[in-house]
Design a protein around this nucleic acid. Structure first.
Lengths: 185, 185
DNA sequence: ACGGCCATGTAACTGGTTACATGATTAC
DNA sequence: GTAATCATGTAACCAGTTACATGGCCGT
């Protein structure tokens, strides 16, 4: 019942197949919601059964057929109703930070390696988010866009994703510095 | 099996009752892991049964007795083993950002109010984190601490929490500005 | 007298993860 | 020929949430 709102928000401006949605959840949506493909397939079925989504089969040649889902009027109403509710507090689950919290009792070499991997991943995400933002902006400046653009919601969530990943990188570099000082190789 | 590592990390330097742990999860641990008290009570029982934690009853007067849990040698080993594993990618679930993503189809007044509430909450968390950080630092400067301090893991996770909440506030203020421009009252 | 805090728990339910399965196509 | 991508799904399990329950103490 919580994933479904993220699905509605993701499909409202662009219909998608389950497969495509899963890809979007891996990249842009991952900013504010995470989900596995399996969860999505299951949820899409339920939402169709409840009339929030409509599915149509698109034939492709040299590729399997796909079922493309779009938000119905009833889905749109449900989304609007959701925006009127008080949002639940953010939940975060970050195993890397759990490992860092336990640093004094940790295998420091492994943790160092995990921090490096996290920096690399954040760089890639940052890159992807910046490209998406550039697409939304088009030729306009931020100010022009904010005055006249129409994908203002996605602009804002992407901005949040960008600052989040930047902070991840900055933090990771600080953490590596500290480890180098305190646990020299 | 994932919550348990966060519990071990939280208890390794300071034993706690279930009730106290729940409070710590609401404040400092919320940085990197969230959990309800109910989940904690259940997990603590399991972990004790598996020998990762030891419990002792502390009698208090004018207050109910409490069961205080501490990490056993076997728990310490499990924590160290966990730090050797590759951490799973961060999962985030943020309903407010889902609402913002759907802004064009949202009840803008409600969303604005929710952003304001989020800013306020982030201010309070920031405040709490900064106080905890000050406690860890004591009279030392950051540089001194990084060279000689011993709660370096918590220092790093708290730093991440602080920059996260600062970014929340900055982002929220930007979002409110944008809403005021595009959806004037 | 009432709400909030201390302290712990059970039960029922909902949501999320993992493993498995299938089969064609495209790129190296 | 091997791996990756396209495309969809089932089943079993594990984790997380919500509602309810109890009872004394403290402050206003």
């Amino acid at each position: 019942m919580a994933l479904r709102n993220a699905v509605l928000a993701a499909l409202i401006d662009r219909e998608s197949s389950g497969y495509d949605l899963a890809k979007r959840f891996r990249v842009s949506v991952a900013n504010f919601w995470t989900s596995t493909p399996q969860q999505l397939y299951r949820e899409l079925e339920k939402m169709e059964a409840e009339g929030l989504l409509a599915a149509r089969v698109v034939k492709q040649d040299k590729r399997p057929d796909k079922r493309v889902f779009s938000v119905t009027v009833s889905g749109r109403d449900a989304l609007r109703a959701f925006t009127r509710q008080e949002p639940k507090p953010t939940t975060v689950r970050d195993e890397l930070l759990v490992q860092v919290e336990a640093l004094a009792h940790a295998d420091v070499g492994s943790v160092r390696e995990s921090i490096r991997a996290r920096i690399e991943q954040s760089r890639q995400r940052l890159d992807a988010y910046e490209k998406l933002l550039a697409e939304i902006l088009g030729a306009r400046s931020h100010d022009e866009f904010l005055a006249t653009g129409n994908r203002i919601g996605p602009y804002l969530t992407l901005s949040r994703g960008i600052s989040f990943e930047r902070e991840n990188i900055t933090w990771g570099e600080l953490a590596l510095d500290v480890l180098d000082r305190r646990y020299p190789a």
